[in-house]
Each structure stands twice: as structure tokens, then as C-alpha cells.
Amino acid sequence: MAKRRKGGRTKAKETNWQERVIQIRRVSKVVKGGKKLSFRAIVVVGNENGQVGVGVGKAGDVIGAVRKGVADGKKQLIDVALTKSNSITHLVNGTSGGAKVIVRPAAPGTGVIAGGAVRTVLELAGVKNILAKQLGSNNPLNNARAVVNALEALRTLAEVAQERGVPLEHLYT
């Protein structure tokens, strides 16, 4: 099962984080003097080793919005349990708003078969062999959050055995 990470990372470990911008959108707010323009950036942060987060930032300029999105993404990090073949343990569904995502493990050599924001999140999580399908909305933010929701729902065999209160060997028989 994916667990949220807490702070406390050192500067040396922060160098391996990768950031990818999914979307930059110009948004406006109506104020007394007219319209105030700002930018919204959706950013995915991951280390390609089982940790990924999705963040949103708004600012008056694009660089500031991306910086805020990266900071937000690092606060939202989850741990993803990967198999030896860099896939996931079992089929899982995730939802967020109107978006639904189906994520399915694949054989080694398959690659990442997914589109849009789903592909970006899975690649930065370190998944190499997976099949994914977006259903419903094609809003990039909701799809990215739906994938994170699905990855959070993953459970390993050891976790299932512990929940059931049986030894791990009994699950194989």
C-alpha cells in the first residue's frame, strides 16, 4: 500500500527528483479594477524509484507557478510498491472527480502503455511495464490524481498476509 512521506529529506537526496509540467493554463480572476491574470501549472514530481507526487501552483508568472507546483508535489509524495519487473502487483482502479483510470500490470518488455498525464505519473513513479486506460474525463489534473489514487490502493503480498493474520507462505498455497 502506498504511504504518504513526511519531510526530513537532506539536500543530497533532493538532486534525483525529476519534475515534468503537465499543463500550464492562463486563468483570470475578476476584481474591482478589471481582470487579474495569473498562471496555473500542474507538475508531477518523482524519483523514478517508487515515489511520485502531483502538485498545482498558481502565480503571476509561469516560473513562479511551476516552482509552487513542484513544492506542492513534494508535499503530496506517495510510495509505490514495484515488482522486480518494475510493474505493479495487481490490477487497480483509481478515481478523482469525473476521471477514472484503470491500471493493469504487464509482462517485462511491454513498456508504459498509457496516454497523457497518466503516462507522465507512471514514468516518474518508476513503472516500466504497465497498461493504463483513462475513462470519463480527460482533464489532466483529475487524471493525474486518479492515477495517484490507484497507486495508493496497491497492496503487496506481505501487507495482505499481515491484514489477514496468516503467514506469507499460506498465500502461495
Rank of each mutant, 00 (worst) to 15 (best):
Q162K: 13
E123V: 01
T110Q: 09
R119N: 02
G64D: 08
V101D: 05
P140Q: 04
I88P: 11
I113W: 01
I88D: 00
R155P: 00
V56G: 13
N138V: 15
H170I: 07
T10M: 10
G165A: 10
K58H: 08
Q23P: 01
L171I: 05
A146H: 06
V112E: 01
A12N: 09
V103W: 03
E159Q: 15
V160H: 07
I42W: 01
V80R: 00
Y172W: 10
V45M: 08
A114R: 13
V166A: 09
V52Q: 08
A146D: 08
H170D: 15
L141E: 15
G7Q: 08
N139I: 07
G8P: 05
K36W: 08
S38D: 07
T15C: 04
G115R: 02
R40N: 12
V45N: 01
K100N: 11
V80Y: 00
V52W: 01
L151G: 05
V56T: 15
V127Q: 01
R145K: 12
R104T: 14
K35S: 12
V148Q: 11
V147Q: 02
A81R: 13
R40F: 09
K100S: 08
L168W: 05
G57F: 00
R4S: 10
G115V: 03
I113V: 14
A99Q: 06
L157N: 14
T173V: 14
R67N: 14
S137Q: 01
T110V: 14
A114H: 07
L168K: 14
K6R: 13
R104S: 12
K100R: 12
T120Q: 05
